[in-house]
Every structure is written in structure tokens, then in C-alpha cells.
Design a protein around this nucleic acid. Structure first.
Length: 273
DNA sequence: CTAATTTGACCGGG
DNA sequence: CCCGGTCAAATTAG
């Protein structure tokens, strides 16, 4: 029940700052008369600093017992080795954090788990790219904001190696607020999901039938099934979350997870101000 | 019948 | 030992 803890406040504020910085960076990047690279670098640095603070604070909040002495935290680089040798590389993996009022980001995700987190009253949902079977390693974790029922905190891990252009149906996606935690290679991921010039849809409540996600172009015909379970033969869902449809989880046990009052008219935090 | 979710167990790090 | 993340079997939905 850590509601008004200063840590939470700091996190919230820093997240806002992070988003603003991200927005600024996008603006600079898409400026009609291209601005100096110096300015862009400045925006990027601001963003980086915000990210660092958030990372540190959230780390301290996650495990309260741990000391806040981070030798490398103040450095400009995260010397993390993201070597896939271990299966659990959760530690301090770089991720982009997006906070939005909808879980729809234009990608097709498959839910593979759900867990209750001690700190919050809302469960955390784990998704993988629906094309993970084809080798895509992108994952994301979705969690509701503890106070705001209609707000989601989505953390994206990894990159869409399946060809993000395919995953992302650019019908309505418009990634709300991409906050780049730019630490590693993920930082330059934006080449694919650039939401340039796409004005927010005034009315996007309509949910359409998504075209079936069949394995398409470069799916290597071979039998290189990554982690398909033997029993459930290649039965992996392709979940599409669109708009503000409360489809995701209405659990009986988790009373908090019910959210029928999700705002239909979403105003992405990106456009604020 | 096939496919998509759900839920509990298991794993592994801190 | 506790907590978070993933797997995988079972169930439900289409």
C-alpha cells in the first residue's frame, strides 16, 4: 500500500519528465528545418538522465532493503552484459517505458503470464510478440498504475526481430509515448516505429477485426520452432489489443483488475501540452 | 475441433 | 527465503 511514498512521487514526476523529454526529442528529430545535432543530443541527454533516475529509484523501490549505492549508476553507460547465456536476465535490462491509457500499441502480443507484484495491488501481465515463434524476442510487461485505473505502464523489452513493420499494423497504432530508456542497442530502435506526422485519431474507439496473423514473408520454412511446447503444437495466440476494449483481464480474484470504466476517448500523454 | 487464455508450478536470482 | 518471470498443462471460447 505504498501510495504516497516519496519514491512513488518521484517516479511519477520523473516519468512525466521523461515523457516530455522524449516528446521534445521527437519534435527536434522531425523538425522541418533540421535543428542542430547538438540540440538533439541535448534532448537525448535529458532523456537519458531521466531514465537513469527512474531506473535508480525504481530499483530502490523494488527492493527496499537494498542499498542505494550504485557504483555505475552515475556513469553515462550501463555496462550491463546482456549476454543470453542465462535465461533470466531480468536484472537491469534496458527497456523502454511507455505510459498510456491503453494497452494497444499496434503490435500483436501473446500473453504468456500474469503475476501479482507485491508492491502493487494490480497484477502484472507478460506478453510476447505473437511472432515469437518465428524468432521475435520482443516482450513487454503491462501493469496498471496503482492509482489511476485507466493508466498503464508498459515496459518494452527487446526488439522486434520478426520485422516490426509486420507486427505493427499501422492502422491506429500511434505509440503513445515512447520513452527511450536508451541504454543499449534498444535506443536506436526507433527506426521502425516512428510515429511521424500521424495525428491522433479523433475517434478510434472502433475495434476492427485484425487481419489474421499468418506466418508471412520471411518465416523460415524450416522447423526451427523456438520454444514451442511439444504438446501444444504451435498453438500460440495472437492477441490484439485495440483501443479501449476491456478485453484483457477481468479476473474474479483480482478485483482491482476490473476496469470497465476505461476512457474511450484516449488522449495520449504524448500530446499533452 | 482448433485455437486462445488462464492459472499454478517451477526456476533462478538477490 | 522471498520475489519476480517463464513455462506448460488445463480450460474455455470460437
Amino acid at each position: 500500500m505504498a501510495l504516497a511514498t516519496p519514491t512513488a512521487v518521484v517516479l511519477e514526476l520523473m516519468t512525466m519528465g521523461q515523457q516530455s523529454a522524449a516528446h521534445l526529442r521527437e519534435l527536434l528529430r522531425a523538425a522541418s528545418p533540421p535543428v542542430q545535432a547538438e540540440h538533439q543530443a541535448l534532448a537525448a541527454e535529458i532523456l537519458r538522465c531521466c531514465d537513469r533516475v527512474i531506473a535508480a529509484v525504481s530499483a530502490g523501490a523494488t527492493d527496499k532493503k537494498r542499498k542505494a549505492t550504485d557504483p555505475g549508476a552515475t556513469s553515462c553507460h550501463l555496462p550491463l552484459a546482456m549476454m543470453p547465456s542465462k535465461r533470466r536476465v531480468r536484472g537491469a535490462e534496458a527497456h523502454r517505458e511507455v505510459h498510456a491509457d491503453t494497452t494497444a500499441d499496434g503490435f500483436v502480443w501473446r500473453k504468456y503470464g500474469q503475476k501479482d507484484i507485491n508492491g502493487s495491488n494490480h497484477p502484472r501481465l507478460y506478453y510476447r510478440c505473437a511472432l515469437s515463434g518465428e524468432g521475435c524476442a520482443a516482450t513487454r510487461r503491462v501493469q496498471r498504475s496503482q492509482e489511476e485505473p485507466a493508466a498503464f505502464v508498459i515496459a518494452y523489452y527487446g526488439e522486434h526481430t520478426c520485422g516490426a513493420a509486420f507486427c505493427q499494423q499501422r492502422a491506429e497504432p500511434l505509440p503513445p509515448t515512447v520513452v527511450d530508456s536508451g541504454s543499449n542497442a534498444w535506443g536506436v530502435f526507433g527506426a521502425v516505429d516512428r510515429n511521424r506526422g500521424s495525428p491522433l485519431l479523433p475517434s478510434l474507439g472502433a475495434e476492427h477485426k485484425h487481419s489474421a496473423v499468418r506466418r508471412h514473408a520471411e518465416a523460415p520454412g524450416d522447423t526451427s520452432r523456438r520454444w514451442s511446447s511439444p504438446s501444444s503444437s504451435s498453438s500460440y495466440s495472437s492477441e490484439v489489443e485495440l483501443g479501449a476494449s476491456p478485453v484483457e483481464g477481468f479476473l474474479d480474484g483480482n478485483f482491482d483488475w476490473e476496469w470497465e470504466t476505461v476512457v474511450n476517448s484516449l488522449s495520449f500523454g504524448d500530446l499533452l501540452h
